[in-house]
């Protein structure tokens, strides 16, 4: 066991982790952030993506001990305390970009990671931004429109 400290969605945690634990397991099994999904365990599907120190990463490829000192954002960190949806979440709803929903939390985070750095992406840039996230329900067209709509909402100062 090893003790590490990290921030998740702004809140500090100090936790004991097993040596061979992944960040994905830490977030889901220990800390209860089950919005982080496991779809493949090898970096291919993107469902486990979280934002770590501002960058989108697949949490199935990060060892828990490597996250010592990091700031993590999961889908649970996007909605305001009063229940207001983040503009990206709202855009996904409004554009019908959600089907089975298993890819959705990570897609929303991929959109966030992109829009945080590039508030006015082109379609091509959006496609690249979500290229590490598979949607097997294949709602890509709607997801791309949702990210565009999210950019609009954000540029108008939220919805």
């Amino acid at each position: 066991m090893k003790t590490i400290s990290l921030k998740v969605n702004g809140k500090p945690y100090t936790v004991e982790v097993e040596e061979d634990m992944r960040l994905l397991d830490l977030l889901r099994d220990k800390l209860g952030f089950t919005g982080v999904k496991e779809g493949c365990a090898e970096g291919e599907c993107g469902a486990c993506s979280v934002i770590m120190d501002g960058n989108l990463v697949t949490s199935c490829l990060v060892m828990a001990f490597q996250a010592d000192g990091k700031e993590i954002i999961t889908i649970e960190g996007l909605q305001s305390e009063d229940g207001t949806l983040h503009p990206i979440q709202q855009a996904f709803l409004d554009e019908g970009a959600v089907q089975c929903g298993f890819c959705t939390p990570a897609m929303v985070l991929a959109a966030k990671a992109l829009l945080d750095k590039n508030p006015n992406p082109t379609d091509e840039q959006i496609k690249e931004g979500i290229s590490g996230n598979l949607c097997r329900c294949t709602g890509y067209a709607k997801i791309v429109s949702a990210v565009k709509k999210a950019a609009e909402y954000l540029n108008q100062g939220g919805k």
Binding site: M52, T58, L61, N133
Partner: peptide, 9 residues
């Protein structure tokens, strides 16, 4: 290489 996630790691 890979995807944005893989390139960030």
């Amino acid at each position: 290489v890979g995807s944005p996630q893989i390139r960030n790691l």
